[in-house]
């Protein structure tokens, strides 16, 4: 009976861990998404230095979370997201508004992918 109780406790721990993981990835992607949306607004207003500062802020959050993301998220997804960050940064350096907005959309899409992948939704389960 002890073994069964230990297994049940471990299973419950995994459920709690899964819930924590969803919350953590939510917080991470939400905070970066906020930075990027503000950065996108700055691009629309032609304020490229602010856009770049906000992008770097988002990138710093993503890099800081590496100990978490590398343990729980597929490395391919992390690499794709990093590529999207640098693509956006490159377009900001060139100060090209349409390309920068498109690159930002691509980055937001990658972030949404990471977020939805961890959410227990029918789409991600099946």
């Amino acid at each position: 009976m002890k073994r069964e109780l230990a297994a049940l406790a471990l299973l419950l721990l995994l459920v709690v861990g899964a819930w924590w993981n969803v919350q953590t990835v939510d917080q991470l992607t939400d905070s970066i998404r906020r930075d990027l949306l503000q950065s996108q607004q700055a691009v629309a207003q032609g304020d490229y230095p602010t856009a770049e500062r906000l992008l770097q802020q988002g990138l710093a959050r993503f890099v800081k979370a590496a100990p978490y993301t590398q343990v729980f998220i597929r490395h391919d997804e992390i690499d794709s997201c990093m590529d999207a960050f640098y693509d956006y940064a490159a377009t900001l350096c060139e100060e090209e508004s349409p390309e920068a907005l498109a690159a930002c959309e691509k980055l937001l899409y990658h972030l949404q992918g990471i977020d939805s992948m961890e959410h227990p939704l029918p789409g991600s389960i099946f």
């Binding site: 297994a7 049940l8 299973l11 995994l14």
Partner: peptide, 11 residues
Amino acid sequence: TLFCCEILIAG
């Protein structure tokens, strides 16, 4: 997870 399920089902 499979290990826990197996232990529980067996028990």
